[in-house]
Design a protein around this nucleic acid. Structure first.
Lengths: 272, 272
DNA sequence: CCTGCGAGTTCCATTATGTGAAACTTTGTT
DNA sequence: AACAAAGTTTCACATAATGGAACTCGCAGG
């Protein structure tokens, strides 16, 4: 799993390697011992060791001398606060999400596309308290979520090809797309219609309707979705929310362009 | 601007410089042009340029070719999700915070110490919805907040000296500590008593009581605080909450040691 | 139109940095 | 005590970073 990159093509120098180590630690999802890290990496012991030392020294990794394990450092949390605040739509969209959430009464997601994957940057639960940070930063598949498909649909041809190349097409449910071909067909549909559904493609019993957030010039910023359980929401009722959601999406886009929001470089990978 | 470190002695290698660039971008709090970054850094143009290129290539920085500005990349948000989940007390403490919040009815903070600064990793508002991610990741001064002082008080001598060296001692209110000396005196008090107050030292009208979260062996994990406006809470009433908060702190510490929580390397900077 | 300027980008000889096999130290186990 | 496994340090070597200078681009003024 790790990331799609593996490393075979990683053209980056020392910095890239160091960051890959961060990813590796993150992939474990728990504090790791040096040996575990070593096993999961193709660096020689000494090299990995120094890499890790550097990361600890810079606060990106935390080392617990008692248990001799490494974890992701708090400096990352600090940096990410900045990233979330300035590189994501979330802070800008916050009041709009609140409004939408209040009006639809179902779970609302705000997502952006990051290297072909869906990155959830904010969320409102049905009628529970506001989302936790643990929701922002979560990633999900693009090919089988409402927000994912809607964003793919509004990518330029080249970027779409790149992004499709990164999809796993794993079958989660019996409605999951398992090939780029059927997905492409639906994306055409979505592009024409302006919104898309997740028809229980990722989790059985979970449906959603999603719309892209586009600038006036058609640039993709992110996506919004309203999600509900199959036993409570019909596709018709979800479709009925579309005008409302569209209004919110446009409001967010308007705020974003006023503020000079940088384009999320989405699937602009590779070519450099 | 730069980091607190500025040590000059051993800033680390290439990786360190690259990460400092990230900090620099984060410090602007908005997308920056290359020239701005250059002005705020002491690297030669070509060097900074390549550093930035590397960071963009690795997804830590995002580049908007239209506006020619750099912002923090979404990869950071993704990584931070992992950091928050595994390097912070937050996920573990979540249910405890919920409980505490429900019982005291005032704002509750969970913080950790990061390089001499307070890092808020979770929060519950008085009776509003749960904190947003924008609260996790926020940093604050250690010398004039309840959680900060309580954590400083439970640092070992060496670490405390380091940490005190990083305090700005800026006067926010007329009760703010403005020197290490008076602060040290209060820290002794706090250590003896086991809890501390923020007597409107950071924001006028804002009081809080804070307790450290310590392992059975006395290792500092973080701190908890209950905060309220001066016109609603007295120091006596806050003090009355201490046993309750202490119970929660102990519960969190117990969970943390069960789970093998890594020590937040706090002020263990320098010596490397 | 062309000239000058500032921002951004590329070049390339130099050298600081990172590399990794192997040796060494520490920690835990039989 | 002896061994093994995990972690740390060493050092000759090579890669990768450095930064001064030159180049390109876009634009404002002459």
């Amino acid at each position: 799993m790790a990331t799609h990159k593996g490393d075979g093509s990683a053209p980056a120098g020392t910095v890239g390697k160091a960051l890959d180590v961060l990813d590796a630690v993150a992939a474990f999802g728990r504090p790791v011992k040096f040996a575990e890290l070593l096993a999961s990496s193709d660096h020689p012991k000494a090299t990995l060791y120094r890499l890790v030392q550097t990361l600890v020294a810079t606060g990106m990794l935390a080392y617990d001398p008692d248990r001799q394990v490494y974890g992701l450092g708090l400096r990352l949390v600090r940096l990410a606060h900045g990233a979330w605040a300035q590189a994501s739509l979330a802070p800008l969209a916050r009041p709009h999400l609140d409004r939408l959430s209040a009006q639809v009464g179902e779970t609302v997601h705000l997502a952006q596309l990051d290297h072909g994957q869906v990155l959830y940057v904010d969320k409102r639960n049905a009628r529970q308290p506001t989302a936790m940070f643990s929701d922002a930063g979560k990633v999900g598949p693009a090919y089988c979520t409402g927000v994912g498909k809607v964003m793919l649909a509004h990518l330029e041809a080249g970027a779409l090809d790149d992004a499709l190349g990164e999809q796993a097409f794993r079958r989660y449910t019996d409605t999951t797309h398992v090939s780029a071909d059927t997905l492409r067909a639906e994306l055409d549909d979505i592009r024409a219609r302006g919104y898309g559904f997740d028809r229980e493609e990722h989790e059985p019993g979970i449906r959603c309707v999603a719309l892209p957030i586009l600038t006036a010039t058609g640039r993709l910023l992110g996506a919004l979705s309203v999600t509900g359980p199959a036993d409570r929401v019909s596709y018709d009722s979800l479709e009925g929310q579309v005008p409302l959601i569209r209004g919110v999406a446009q409001a967010i886009a308007a705020d974003a362009s006023d503020w000079g929001f940088p384009e999320p470089k989405a699937a602009r990978v590779g070519t450099g």
